[in-house]
């Protein structure tokens, strides 16, 4: 059955159209959600927060977007246990909004990095568990300046104990702790990753592993 997916747009979001193309191409329905508006959570089966430079990364990546009206609805949506996927800047926004633990800080190299990354699925979580099995490897592109996952010692331990580490880099590109590329919330319905599945949909793009994420 086809799902209805809400795609959040902030000022400065720049992967919104890519995600729209990806979602529609997979046969699902989709609608943009404007950052200034709240939405009816009953109308959607899933929310995706795409990548980009919301508010030009002013203050901190994702900090201003996390405080915009649409995130009130996203938060409600999360409380209902419905699935939310954050990609790149979407990951940063979810951390800033407190829907995911930890933070994403500047890459160790202090430089923006664009390259193909080999990932390994660290946990089969309920929502994507059907498609992605533990230890499965995936090839996805990364493109970020602030993708280094950071958390406190206790925070990391909690992530490990509760199986919240979702995806890991085979070769760490940014200095992220425990090679983390993606995590899930404690409740298991909020997912986020730095790599871009919407840019790996067909072989001609370099990989089609993005299909596992819809």
């Amino acid at each position: 059955m086809s799902k209805k997916i809400g795609i959040v747009r902030f000022l400065g979001t720049n992967c919104d159209a890519d995600v729209m193309k990806w979602v529609l191409g997979s046969g699902q329905q989709a609608e943009y959600l404007w950052y200034q508006d709240q939405f009816n959570i009953e109308n959607f089966d899933q929310i995706i927060i795409p990548g980009g430079f919301s508010y030009g990364d002013y203050l901190r990546c994702g900090a201003m977007a996390a405080r915009s009206p649409v995130m009130k609805s996203v938060s409600e949506f999360s409380k209902k246990g419905k699935p939310i996927l954050g990609i790149c800047n979407g990951f940063q926004i979810l951390c800033e909004a407190g829907l995911l633990p930890g933070a994403l800080i500047k890459n160790e190299s202090l430089k923006f990095k664009d390259e193909w990354a080999e990932l390994i699925v660290a946990e089969e979580k309920s929502f994507f568990g059907k498609q992605m099995k533990k230890k499965q490897t995936l090839k996805l592109p990364i493109a970020h300046g602030d993708g280094r996952y950071y958390n406190t010692g206790d925070g990391l331990k909690k992530l490990q104990d509760q199986d919240q580490i979702w995806l890991k880099y085979q070769k760490n590109p940014n200095g992220s702790l425990l090679d983390i590329a993606g995590i899930t919330s404690e409740s298991g319905n909020v997912f986020a990753l730095m790599p871009h599945p919407e840019r790996a949909v067909f072989q001609w793009m370099g990989s089609s592993d993005g299909v596992y994420f819809l």
Binding site: A17, K21, F112, K113, D114, E115, M205
Partner: peptide, 27 residues
């Protein structure tokens, strides 16, 4: 590569071939 790796080469999801090759292709 230290140059090209700082450029986002795949945003827009049209890129078929980028800086790793002599010329680029977008769909």
């Amino acid at each position: 590569n230290w140059i090209y790796n700082q450029y986002d080469q795949r945003v827009c999801a049209r890129t078929a071939q980028a800086c790793e090759s002599p010329i680029a292709f977008v769909q």
